[in-house]
């Protein structure tokens, strides 16, 4: 009886954690998208009003952004300063693919980021601002959707976790 009790507690805890993990994953992705958006907005301002070169502005942005976004901006700045890539696109893409392993971004998010990287380095100011606006539009739209989904399904993930655990325990007992 004692062992069965411990087993039931472990099963319910495990399924509850899975529910939490589902909700947390979306929350962390949202946080990362927010940080990237903040960085890209700063980038736009620096390009529009100061014309700062990418290496210098990404270095500054990396101090003001957290998590994988800050890390990615920092790595890109260093590589650009050292001219480690043949093009800005190459440096941007390889860096985001490296931080992907540590992030909650999806394949679609990364595809949008790398598509933006293909416009870096050779455009005039107005064109560069245009490509930044397109990325900002995507980031804002994604965040809206995630927020709506979290509002709608956030509690559901937790409840599903607990209830599925209980169901499993009852069935097994």
């Amino acid at each position: 009886m004692f062992i069965e009790g411990i087993g039931a507690i472990l099963v319910v805890s495990a399924t509850t954690l899975v529910g939490f993990a589902f909700a947390a994953k979306e929350k962390y992705r949202l946080k990362e998208l927010e940080e990237i958006e903040r960085g890209i907005l700063l980038m736009k301002n620096q390009i529009s009003y100061l014309g700062t070169p990418l290496a210098a502005l990404l270095e500054q942005i990396s101090w003001k952004t957290e998590g994988v976004a800050g890390q990615a901006f920092q790595n890109i700045a260093v590589r650009m300063e050292e001219r480690q890539g043949d093009s800005a696109e190459e440096i941007w893409e390889s860096t985001w693919l490296e931080v992907e392993k540590k992030s909650y971004l999806t394949a679609v998010d990364l595809e949008e980021l790398t598509a933006f990287g293909r416009t870096l380095g050779f455009l005039e100011k107005e064109q560069q601002e245009g490509s930044i606006d397109m990325l900002l539009h995507y980031l804002q739209e994604k965040q809206e959707r995630i927020k709506k989904r979290l509002d709608k399904n956030g509690r559901l993930y937790y409840s599903m976790g607990v209830l599925s655990g209980l169901l499993l325990v009852i069935t097994l007992l």
């Binding site: 390009i47 014309g51 700062t52 070169p53 990418l54 290496a55 650009m80 093009s87 800005a88 440096i91 870096l120 380095g121 050779f122 455009l123 005039e124 100011k125 560069q128």
Partner: peptide, 9 residues
């Protein structure tokens, strides 16, 4: 151009 041609217009 430091990968930033907009800065060197």
């Amino acid at each position: 151009g430091g990968y930033s041609l907009y800065a060197f217009e």
